[in-house]
Amino acid sequence: MKLGSYRIIKLHRLIFPIGLLIFMFAYYWQIKDIPNPAENLAMVYPVLGLLLVLTVINSIREIQIEKIADVTSVQDQEKEKEKDNKFSFKKIIQSKIFVLVVITSIFLILIPFFGLVVMTAFYLPVVLWGLGNRNWLLIIFLPIGAVILIKLLFGYWMNIPIP
């Protein structure tokens, strides 16, 4: 982020602290009208206060400001661009983590509708393929094995409720 002849770098390091501040605000909003706060919030208020102070201190320490150098050559221009794009969303989307997170999110959202056994039968082949497995035997037989294991071991033998 540019501010005149200066630039704030590594802004992505504030993702967690900013998220935390939002959570703290939402938390405070939820508890502000609680009866008898001296008793019911005896620990919450000091924790919330301390957390706020530490998060602000940490955020100030995380921000780094540097002067933008006079850029003349094409090479320097490329370097500057690289600095700005160090935290790239494109890279994240292409990563295996992104594939895993998206497929697992869909898996967990759909379990209440189709059940764990059916969803596992779909989830495992898709995620194995998505993570770069090209061994067809594994892609076919691992989900079958997993479904049998879940049904027999957890469902019948241990009698554990399966979603």
């Binding site: 697992t104 497995n133 554990i160």
Partner: peptide, 21 residues
């Protein structure tokens, strides 16, 4: 890991579910 991780996720899902159904 591309086999271990998905299998662990499925087992962990059952484990997390079983605490309170």
């Amino acid at each position: 890991t591309n086999v271990l991780v998905p299998v662990t996720i499925v087992l962990a899902t059952i484990g997390a579910f079983s605490t309170r159904n």
